[in-house]
Write a protein that binds this DNA or RNA. Structure first.
Lengths: 344, 344
DNA sequence: CTGTTAGCGCATTCAT
DNA sequence: ATGAATGCGCTAACAG
């Protein structure tokens, strides 16, 4: 093995071996034009031979900016929860921002100030908020982050009441789209197995279902509705509950694909034909949903684009903040896309 | 709205309002015992009223440590790829480390020095390597990170040749376990639809299959094997290829659950009974696999524990490096767990 | 074009 | 038990 911990080479070392001042090295490193090409080459040679790399920490400190974004996300198994979508990482990369992650585990206490303190202490310039719970504690926390600490926040969940701009999926539109699709297919008794009651996106999809049903003059009262947990268990239980409650129905709009999967499983066990007796549609276009039995119709969202937009918005807010301005940013609403398969 | 960007309060402000020196404030903040309780309270009062929080960036700079770990992971849709598992975040949190993420997108060029430079420039103290490709470029890069830059690396994929300790799933053991299970169930013609050929874990699972087959005196030549892509498409295509090639077989060991899903779909279309005509087993225990048709037997790995172990190992290596020692760390191999369901 | 002076916010000597 | 001086690695503002 070679020497384990060789001292880091600093700008000072480069300056010494190149025989110039620190400042000149700094200029070369930052690509300033105001340096003679002769010295530039000399400095560059020293940099290369010493293997110098500038210490971003020091640079961040003096410039008063960390070039870092905080990401607050759920640590659960929900798709779109724990998963960092590549749009965020790619766009952050492009803006020169690093990403600091803070996960909220399901069994953690509700997020309070201490929860984001670690991000704030590391001087993140902005925060991407990916938690979908409808909890007033969240709203208060977000407000404190933006107002007390002056750190901009962009939400990846639609939640007007929080008062920060968002880049989110049009969950309401998705609910409408899914339900209208079933109606167009001639279905009339369409039930909804929603996500958890306290989740923003679940509520929005539910609203969409109700809207589409009512505009078609079909029943969408609470008897046609049951809440699940985003998982197959909830879908299975919900399906059985609804059967017992209503006797029968001819279509299921499931809050997401996993819920639909569980519900379809229940239908199979009851000997029902899909889509003959009951049609199904989900939301997410989860990996594998095209190979369920039968392949599941679903609503897709462009996560990459949502992520990109969120980072762009945050970057603009940070920029404005540095300039001392307050910016009213338009939200970005990601359009749902219908994926037709055999289940409906 | 309140004032958008109030100047950050520093240790200096606290010292002024409390009427003490910077040093004393520093002591209070760091919980040193050597401070009179009277002054401590005065300082604490100033801290509270001003809302002071220490700037971790400055602290990191002077201490020469960033309290940050780099995470290099795949930006793909593979389960276990993009997903940061909560074991990592939880344990990092416990050690006081922040996580800096660097994703490798499938269409990115092979990782070179520039790929990890961003992490290194931000002075990460260690790197968690989650890329599973068997590429010599990776090995060379990892070696340069540890040797040239003196930054320890722990892999989350078993890959002895790289020469860094790992905390990984026992993919070989999983292959053996899955295959033996099928054999015990009386299956004899057991084919394997593997992951991509260049993936470490795919190769290990394949080896496990071959080992179990040969120890039972069953055929495990290349005609019983086909490579997939970790997705249902690969499973479907692989199943059809094997049918055409062999005529028939009575069990499929799929490289992962999604592959199994695609293969089961192909079997359904051919009118085969599962598990009557063909049994199936996968690996991953993906969300939903318990509701596939039929529910899929699979091998589970404890991701949380793997993550915890990896961070612990890295922390120890960092500690040793600071003390100038070289540490030979035992690897951690996560034991596979058989999940029995109806497909086998 | 280049060097000097200063300081980001904090912790680590050493004094007292 | 407290304070003063020093410096981490770098850049901003000014000189020359």
């Amino acid at each position: 093995m070679s020497s384990p911990s060789k001292r880091k080479v600093s700008i000072k070392d480069v300056a010494a071996t190149a025989g110039v001042s620190l400042q000149t090295v700094s200029r070369v490193v930052n690509g300033s034009e105001e340096v003679a090409s002769a010295t530039r080459e000399r400095v560059q040679a020293a940099i290369d031979s010493l293997g110098y790399r500038r210490n971003e920490l020091a640079r961040n400190l003096i410039q008063g900016r960390s070039r870092t974004l905080g990401v607050v996300c759920a640590g659960q198994d929900y798709l779109g929860g724990r998963q960092l979508n590549s749009g965020i990482t790619a766009e952050a990369e492009a803006f020169g921002y690093a990403l600091l992650i803070r996960e909220h585990q399901p069994d953690d206490p509700e997020p309070d100030d201490r929860f984001v303190q670690g991000l704030l202490d590391r001087q993140v310039e902005g925060i991407l908020w990916m938690l979908a719970e409808r909890h007033t504690a969240h709203e208060a926390l977000i407000r404190r982050i933006t107002e007390t600490h002056g750190v901009p926040v962009v939400a990846l969940v639609r939640s007007e009441s929080v008062g920060v701009p968002f880049s989110a999926f049009d969950n309401f539109g998705a609910g409408v789209m899914a339900t209208r699709h079933l109606i167009e297919r001639g279905r009339r008794r369409i039930v909804h197995i929603a996500g958890p009651e306290h989740a923003w996106d679940a509520q929005e999809r539910l609203r969409g279902w109700r809207h589409a049903m009512e505009e078609a003059g079909l029943p969408a009262d609470d008897s046609h509705l049951v809440f699940g947990n985003w998982g197959p268990e909830g879908g299975e239980a919900g399906f059985l509950t609804l059967r017992e409650r209503l006797g029968g129905f001819d279509a299921v709009f499931a809050g997401n694909d996993h819920t639909a999967l569980g519900a379809m499983s229940a239908a199979h066990k009851l000997g029902l034909q899909i889509p003959g007796d009951v049609a199904f549609i989900g939301v997410d276009d989860v990996k594998g949903s095209g190979w369920y039995v039968p392949p599941l119709s679903t609503i897709r969202r462009n996560r990459v684009e949502m992520g990109r937009q969120a980072v762009r918005m945050l970057a603009r807010l940070i920029e404005a903040g540095r300039a001392g301005q307050t910016l009213a940013l338009p939200d970005y609403l990601c359009a749902p896309e219908l994926i037709l398969r055999e289940s409906s």
